[in-house]
Amino acid sequence: MKWVQKDIEMFQEAREHIDTVLVPMIGIDMGTGMKQSAQMQEFLAILASEIERQFKGRMILLPPFTYWPPSDSLTLQHSALSWKNSILEEGFKHVFFITCDSLWRGNEGELGGSLIWIPSIPLEGLDDHYKRELMSGQVSQIANVFAQKWLVEK
């Protein structure tokens, strides 16, 4: 479900079935990395919305966790962690963060298994058909992560 009124109404009616929250994480860079930051954002937005489409009935897609390049990544880890804890306190069972920012690579800290890192692929100049193939490949890989988690707990 998306963070829009219509979907949230549906959520409230079927709350017991929705136990997973997906949070995209996006770093803003207005310096030398500006173009790349925008490109990652674009890629991640599409990816997240595709995942949402596939798992609409069990997952809420939150607005992105957005940050400036941190002076120390620990502070950033902490604020992500506090998102996670707040979500868990609301009664959700699974929280996943998804990001393309290499900052998080090997830097998951206490986010541990909640963090899904994927390299972003520049979509610019690719033809539509190929773009779709490529995206659906990525989506199905990530889909597996969720499906596995859910199956295990069943």
Partner: peptide
Amino acid sequence: LGCTVDWNTNKDHPNQFFCPCH
């Protein structure tokens, strides 16, 4: 609740459409 089902993806129930959500 509107997830996307897939064909034949659940080993325990072959040749059915399966919804990963519930």
